[in-house]
Simulated scan of single mutants.
Amino acid sequence: MKKRRISAFWSGCLATAVTVALGTTVLAASGQVTFNFANVAVDGKTTITAGTTITAANGQQVPSSILYTDAAGGKTNYLPIRTISELLGVEIGYDSATKTVLLGEQSAENTSGEVYWQRSVDGTSFDYTSERPLTPHTDPPAWSPAWLPDGWGLSESSGSTSWSSYRYRGDTGTITFRCEYPDGGSVGASVRYEQTVQNCRQVTIQGQTADLYTEGEKTYLVWEGQDGILFWFSGNKISADDLIKVAESVQPVTGQMPDLQMTWAPDGYTKYERVARGNAVQETWLGPDTSFTLLYAAVPLELPDGTPESLQVNGVQAQYWQAEEPYESDGGSMTVNGEAVEGSQAEIAGVTVSTGTIVGPNAAGVNTLAWTDPDSGIFFRLHGTLDRETLVRIAEQIQ
């Protein structure tokens, strides 16, 4: 059973139950509090009778229940946490380091203090390696920053079932964020000077010790979470203080993005890759020698500089940025066993291989179409070498 975190309000109620006088009713700031008001039944059997108190472990008498009546007349019943644990037959504990009330078994998370990732240094390189046996995962780790500096947006998303990666871009800099299960993987980087690695300093991120490397305009920030997930940030042209602030905001993503699909694509284009992780979905299609990409997310997206053209996509206000310069094709050629293959696809050992240039959102020859769904608040971006009319047609048939 995974650790369940009980809110501070519950523990506050427990503290109140221990310290207040055991009168029948007291007045709260905006309502009324009544003690020992309710019966409690488990599986049809009354286990606590109204009007009775409970003897705590220290021998003190505390209320068996608390009834709070708010100013509007609404009623809410509260029970002490220890009573809940006894009624449900689960163990109770308290982790003073994290100020967490623990109910039930806690073996699912790394509460033992075991370190899953080992740091190694070789000159100007540093690596974090997990030697834990591979564990099959059906879902990738879903964490993302809740705060970014003004003007920053999600640029790209990638990953597998064991790791997720997001790239963010601001006016002048970039941030790459990666979170990875401890499944035998390795994450590392090389810098220019050995002194950068030697001068690595430690900072605290969300109560965990993190390694901070700085060299010129480049900054790395790495730490292991309580459940063994490795968190890795690399920032370019962003201050260490701002990167630490972004890291402090990292939190698990709740909920799922809608499974939207493109129901139409231009002739000659085939789906190359679809990456869905956390609060973002990215899908890339390959054409004869280039590509287009759809990215939609619950967070703002990176958009081109300059003044866009306003237009409509299914009645929704959208923005279109024309490419800075015409796209130049490289022919999309492919060679198999030393021989040129005509077209953009070939079958090798029963596997269909496609070739084409995957253009990034910052390429000079890329056109961009962006809009925000007014109902869901989801941000959309289509970018590629296709013309405006084709991008709009694709957008209007996303369902």
Rank of each mutant, 00 (worst) to 15 (best):
A17N: 02
A17K: 01
A17R: 00
A17L: 13
V18C: 10
V18K: 02
V18R: 07
T19D: 03
T19V: 15
T19R: 06
V20G: 02
V20H: 04
V20D: 00
A21E: 13
A21S: 14
A21N: 14
A21V: 05
L22R: 05
L22I: 06
L22A: 12
G23M: 06
G23W: 00
G23H: 01
G23I: 09
T24V: 15
T25E: 12
T25Y: 01
T25N: 05
T25Q: 11
T25C: 11
V26L: 14
V26E: 02
V26M: 15
V26D: 04
L27S: 14
A28F: 15
A28Y: 08
A28I: 08
A28T: 12
A29V: 11
G31I: 04
G31F: 01
G31E: 02
Q32P: 02
Q32E: 12
Q32M: 12
V33D: 00
V33A: 11
V33Q: 02
T34E: 11
T34Y: 00
F35L: 14
F35S: 02
F35H: 01
F35D: 02
N36M: 01
N36H: 05
N36W: 01
N36F: 10
F37L: 13
F37W: 10
F37I: 12
F37Q: 11
A38S: 12
A38H: 02
A38C: 14
N39P: 02
N39Y: 04
V40E: 00
V40L: 11
V40Q: 04
V40H: 01
V40F: 10
A41Y: 03
A41L: 11
A41W: 09
V42K: 08
V42I: 15
D43P: 03
D43G: 05
D43A: 12
K45Y: 05
K45F: 04
K45N: 07
K45R: 14
K45P: 04
K45A: 08
T46P: 00
T46Y: 05
T46A: 13
T47C: 15
I48N: 07
I48H: 07
G51W: 06
G51E: 03
G51M: 04
T52H: 04
T52K: 04
T52D: 03
T53I: 07
T53W: 09
I54M: 15
I54G: 06
I54T: 07
T55L: 13
T55G: 07
T55E: 11
T55C: 10
T55Q: 12
A56G: 05
A57S: 13
A57W: 13
A57M: 07
A57P: 10
A57H: 05
A57R: 06
N58P: 09
N58K: 01
